[in-house]
Write a protein that binds this DNA or RNA. Structure first.
Length: 422
RNA sequence: GGAGAGAUGGCAGAGUGGUCGAUUGCGGCGGUCUUGAAAACCGUUGUACCGCAAGGUACCAGGGGUUCGAAUCCCUUUCUCUCCGCCA
C-alpha cells in the first residue's frame, strides 16, 4: 500500500497519477487525509492521558510505600476517570486506524511516469521484438494436437484425477518440463540469483504481505482446515521471507530465484484462452525476485528485463516486450513489462513473463526495510518477474518447431532434455 | 494425535507486581593503545507512533482480563522443544 506520507504530502499529484490507472482517487484520498488528521489528534491526547496515568500510578506506589494509605486511596479515585478516558480514546484510535488501513489497501500503486496512458491490452506499447518467425505450412498443428500425436500431455487424464486445467505430462513431455525448469534455474544462478526452494502453501499473513489477500482471495486455492493457501506464484513465499525484516544496505540488491508449481483458480476464464496449455490451474514457473534500494531499483528492473530476454533468445522463440499501459497494469505494480512469445500454429502471442517494479508499495505492507549507510531505516523496493512460466513456452516450442520429422528441441535445451527432437 | 515444558532486544540468557524498555554476556558500531592487527580498556548499540522541539506514548509470541500500576498474576490463540504414537 501507499505510505501515508506520500498521500498526505502530495495529495493532488497522487490523484492525478492514480487517474492513469483509471482509478478515481479524489474522494478516497480526501477521506484518508481526514482520517489521518483524526488519528494524529487522537494519538496526541491519548499519549497525554497515558502519561498522566503513569505519573499518578507512580505517586500512588510511593504513597503506599510511605504508609500514607488515606492519601493513596484518595489518589486512586482520580485514576478511574482517567482510565475510562484512555479506554475510550484507544478504542477510537484503533477503529480509526482500522478504517484508515481498510481505505489504504483499496488504493492501487502509483504508476511510474513512463507508463503509457491506456484502457486495456490494446493500448500496451511494443517496446522491442526479437527472434525469428517460423514459416509453418497452413496445416500446422496447434500444440494440443501435437501433444496428443506424440503422447506428451494427457489433458483427459488430468480431468479424471483432478479436473480441467491439471494436465498429466508424459514421457518426453514430462522430461521437457524437467529440462526447462533446470535450464531456467541454472541460467538464473549464473546471473547471480540465489536459488531457494519455498513452501507451496502459505499462511494468511503471507497472503496479505504480497497483496493476494484480501482482494484476490477467490483466485487462490484455500485449505480451510488449516487456513493455508496454495501459492499462485513463488513470488508469495519468496517475497515473504523478507516480511518484517530490516536489511543492511550492503546486502542489497537481494537476488533470489525459485522454481515452484503455481496454483490458480482462474475463476471466470473461458473459451480459446483456456485451450490446451494456454491457461491452467496448476503450472510450473521459475521466478526471480529482487529487493533493492529506491535509488537502484530501476537499474535492477532493466537488468531483469534484459535477463529474461536472454532466455527467450536462447530458446530461439519469436518474442516481443510490451510496456503495459496504466489500464492493463496490476493493482500493486508501478511499472510492468510483459514478455510474449508467438505460437505460430495458433497464430497468437502468448504471455510468458511479467516483470514488475513495485517500488515501496509491497514493501510497505511487508514492512521490508533497510538501514542505509547513514543509519536511516527506510522502505525497500521490491521487484519480480517470471523467468519463465513453462506452459506457454512449451506451447510455442511445440508449435513453432514442428517438422514432418518431429519436433526439434532448441540447441541450448538439448543438454537438459537429453534428446534433440520429439 | 496424547503428555509435559517453554516463547524476553541481532544471538545467548536474567528478570515472578512499582525503582524494568528491561541485568549480563556475545555480536555490531565508535574510540584509546599499536607500524598494522589481535588482546585489553572506554563509550555506544531495538522498532513504531505523536510532537517544531524539549519530550511523550506503545511494544517482553498474538488477543483478552485482574490491578492505581503487569515482562511478571489469570484466561485464550498460535508457535517451538522433549517424550510417546504414526510415518516419507
Amino acid at each position: 500500500m501507499l505510505t501515508l506520507k506520500v498521500i498526505t504530502e502530495n495529495k493532488e499529484e497522487v490523484i492525478r497519477r492514480l487517474a492513469k490507472k483509471r482509478f478515481n482517487g479524489a474522494e478516497i484520498i480526501e477521506q484518508v487525509v481526514e482520517l489521518d488528521a483524526k488519528r494524529r489528534a487522537l494519538q496526541t491526547t491519548l499519549d497525554a492521558n497515558s502519561a498522566e496515568m503513569n505519573n499518578l500510578s507512580k505517586v500512588i506506589g510511593d504513597l503506599f510505600k510511605q504508609g500514607k494509605q488515606a492519601a493513596a486511596a484518595d489518589a486512586k479515585t482520580k485514576t478511574a476517570e482517567l482510565k475510562e478516558t484512555i479506554k475510550t480514546l484507544s478504542v477510537e484510535l484503533d477503529s480509526t486506524e482500522k478504517k484508515l488501513n481498510e481505505l489504504l489497501v483499496t488504493i492501487p500503486n502509483l504508476p511510474h511516469e513512463s507508463v503509457p496512458e491506456g484502457k486495456g491490452a490494446e493500448d500496451n506499447l511494443v517496446e522491442r521484438t526479437g527472434g525469428m518467425m517460423p514459416n509453418l505450412p497452413e496445416d500446422a498443428m496447434p500444440h494440443w494436437d501435437l501433444a496428443k500425436k506424440y503422447d506428451l500431455i494427457d489433458f483427459e487424464m488430468g480431468v479424471k484425477i483432478t479436473g480441467a486445467g491439471f494436465p498429466v505430462y508424459k514421457g518426453k513431455g514430462a522430461r521437457l518440463q524437467r529440462a526447462l525448469i533446470n535450464f531456467f534455474l541454472d541460467n538464473a544462478r549464473e546471473a547471480g540469483y540465489l536459488e531457494v526452494q519455498p513452501p507451496y502453501v502459505v499462511n494468511a499473513a503471507s497472503g496479505y504481505g504480497t497483496g493476494q489477500l484480501p482482494d484476490k482471495e477467490d483466485q487462490m486455492y484455500h485449505c480451510q482446515i488449516d487456513d493455508f493457501y496454495l501459492i499462485p506464484t513463488a513470488e508469495v513465499p519468496v517475497t515473504n521471507m523478507y516480511r518484517d525484516v530490516i536489511l543492511q544496505e550492503s546486502e542489497l540488491p537481494v537476488k533470489n530465484t525459485a522454481y515452484s508449481a503455481c496454483f490458480r483458480r482462474e475463476a471466470g476464464s473461458y473459451g480459446k484462452d483456456v485451450r490446451g496449455l494456454n491457461r491452467l490451474h496448476q503450472f510450473d514457473k521459475v521466478e526471480i525476485v529482487r529487493i533493492d534500494t529506491p535509488e537502484h531499483s530501476y537499474e535492477s528492473l532493466t537488468e531483469m528485463v534484459n535477463y529474461v530476454q536472454t532466455l527467450v533468445d536462447k530458446l530461439e522463440l519469436p518474442w516481443r516486450i510490451l510496456r503495459l499501459c496504466g489500464g492493463d497494469m496490476s493493482f500493486t505494480s508501478a511499472i510492468t513489462f510483459d514478455f510474449e512469445v508467438f505460437a505460430a500454429a495458433q497464430k497468437r502471442w502468448l504471455e510468458v513473463s511479467s516483470v514488475s517494479n513495485f517500488e515501496s508499495y509491497q514493501a510497505n505492507r511487508l514492512k521490508c526495510r533497510f538501514k542505509s549507510e547513514d543509519k536511516k531505516t527506510q522502505l525497500c523496493h521490491t521487484l519480480n518477474g517470471s523467468a519463465l512460466a513453462l506452459p506457454r513456452i512449451v506451447a510455442a516450442l511445440l508449435e513453432n518447431n514442428q517438422t514432418p520429422d518431429g519436433i526439434l528441441i532448441p540447441k541450448a535445451l538439448v543438454p537438459y532434455t537429453g534428446f534433440e527432437s520429439i
